[in-house]
């Protein structure tokens, strides 16, 4: 598989009253053609800021890029002017947001919102864009698209708005689609519809997807590879099976352990004690040190480096150092059989 996007040592901070919040700290990853990379983590872990940086939607100020590169098509997106970015956004890289209620323009018809991109990037006439809009709505499974295209967002249900958002995002056949919690605001039955739709579209058009989510079920359902973020850093990356069946980082163990298991009777859920670090004053060592049950002296002082476990699997944890004591995966983090009605 060839690489389509590479993020190298990206650091993003936000200026607030009295302090600088270091939301993303030295994040590096690659995105391959046609794959789905899931970025998981709690709120405040920096996953959304990372995604917004790729398409330069981080408001500056208060945000600022401290360093790093985002290489797409051999060029660094961070060096581009706002004008140049406009020809990339929507055309090469597009994004769908969590909340379909607030990310569509309530004063424009859905048709107009789809046509906007088509007329700008594909030089289509109004009429061509309208016809293409009907096709796109049909593609994302909206019934009677001829009628629906003339309607406003408030006339759509939540699931249909997210479909319309996907139609807008896909209108110019982008190479990369960034989906920031695309199903969090939706009910499970509608979530299943939208995930299925994204999968179909990826198969047909070969789009690479960056999926940002905190739901490990959604990750298991859609991802090819997974990056786990914590405290503004990527703490573990690997193929989806490696993350679920051979996780190496204690934070990943904690995440897997705090999911209720449908096939087991558990009296207590495993919890990660405490709360995430304050990124205005991030710890010098590993960001997880205060909540980690295996923390050693070295963890608070030095940030562990990324250690390769396999050619596709990396984790940043001192436990992987040869001098560290050997720790086995806790039982709670072992992904169960889940023999429920399927």
């Amino acid at each position: 598989m060839s690489e389509i996007l590479e993020v190298k040592d990206l650091s993003v901070s936000f200026d607030t009253y009295g302090s600088e919040v270091k939301a993303v700290r030295n994040v590096s990853f690659q995105l391959m053609k046609g794959e789905t990379l899931a970025i998981v983590g709690e709120s405040g872990s920096g996953k959304s800021v990372t995604a917004q940086s790729i398409i330069r939607l981080v408001p500056t100020p208060p945000g600022k890029f401290i360093g790093g590169e985002i290489r797409f098509n051999g060029e660094d997106l961070l060096q581009k002017s706002e004008k140049q970015m406009e020809s990339i956004r929507g055309k090469e890289i597009s994004m769908i947001f969590q909340d379909p209620m607030t990310s569509l323009n309530p004063t424009m018809t859905i048709g107009k919102q789809i046509a906007e991109g088509l007329m700008k990037h594909q030089n289509m006439s109004k009429k061509e864009a309208h016809l293409r809009g009907i096709q796109l709505l049909k593609l994302v499974g909206i019934p009677t698209p001829e009628v629906r295209i003339k309607q406003y967002p408030h006339q759509y249900s939540g699931g249909m708005r997210q479909r319309a958002m996907i139609a807008i995002a896909l209108s110019c056949n982008p190479k990369i689609l960034i989906a920031d919690e695309p199903t969090t605001a939706l009910d499970v039955t509608i979530q299943a519809q939208i995930l299925e739709l994204m999968r179909q579209i990826q198969e047909e058009m070969g789009t690479a997807i960056i999926l940002i989510t905190h739901d490990l079920g959604v990750v298991a359902n859609t991802a090819t590879r997974v990056a786990v973020m914590y405290g503004g850093k990527i703490v573990e990356t690997g193929m989806v099976d490696e993350i679920f069946f051979e996780p190496k980082h204690p934070y990943t163990w904690g995440l897997l352990g705090s999911m209720p298991k449908l096939d087991k009777e558990q009296e207590e859920l495993q919890v990660i004690p405490g709360s995430p670090p304050d990124l205005a004053d991030p710890p010098t060592g590993c960001p997880f040190v205060t909540r980690c049950p295996y923390a050693m002296n070295v963890c608070g002082e030095h940030m562990p480096s990324d250690t390769s476990v396999s050619s596709t699997h990396e984790a940043a944890c001192w436990l992987l150092d040869e001098r560290a004591p050997k720790v086995d995966i806790p039982e709670s983090a072992i992904v169960g059989g889940n023999d429920i009605y399927v």
Binding site: V188, T189, Q191, A192, L195, D215, L216, G217, V218, V219, A220, N221, A223, V240, D241, F244, L256, M259, L262, V335, G336, G337, N338, I340, Y341, V342
Partner: peptide
Amino acid sequence: SAIPIANP
């Protein structure tokens, strides 16, 4: 059937 299960 729509609940995504955390097991790839």
